[in-house]
Amino acid sequence: MIGQKNIIQMVIVSFAFYSISCMNLPVDHSNPYDRVYENGNYRIVLAPAINVGSGLKFEWSDIVTIPTAENESPDNLNLSSLTFYVANGKFSDTDISKIQNQQTLAGSITAISYGSALTEFTAPHDGQKTLSLDPSNAYEVVLEASGTAGGKAILFHSNIVRWQP
């Protein structure tokens, strides 16, 4: 026999289970090849490259804080450089390790620096850039940002974008 108590209990339990099913637990995007990548307090998402004939066009969205960052906002972020690093073919494991450890990339890969007068250095930080790269070759590209936030020096990278002809 179904009583009022059974119905109320069932509604409570159904609601509880529904709430649990809606729970989406955050998982770190710790692989630079992921569509989005997090290795610090800030995140910059580089969109896949577009072939514009004269080169490859890259576009990135505004910089956002990762939920772990406390009392920080992209607005008080003072960028001093935005640099594209381009690898012919693939980044080496050393480069990937540097990206993951928030270290400046250097070495055999090509650095294409941005001029300091660019408006992207102040919020909002979104922008686009066409790099003079031959679209018939394969590349991997990452964007490195450095500057200060709350008086502290910061360095972070975007996700790695792969270009396959």
């Binding site: 710790s30 692989n31 090849y33 992921d34 996700n159």
Partner: peptide
Amino acid sequence: KAAKDPVEAERRY
């Protein structure tokens, strides 16, 4: 973490 390809990284994620 070992995925070296954006598509695979997304799938593994």
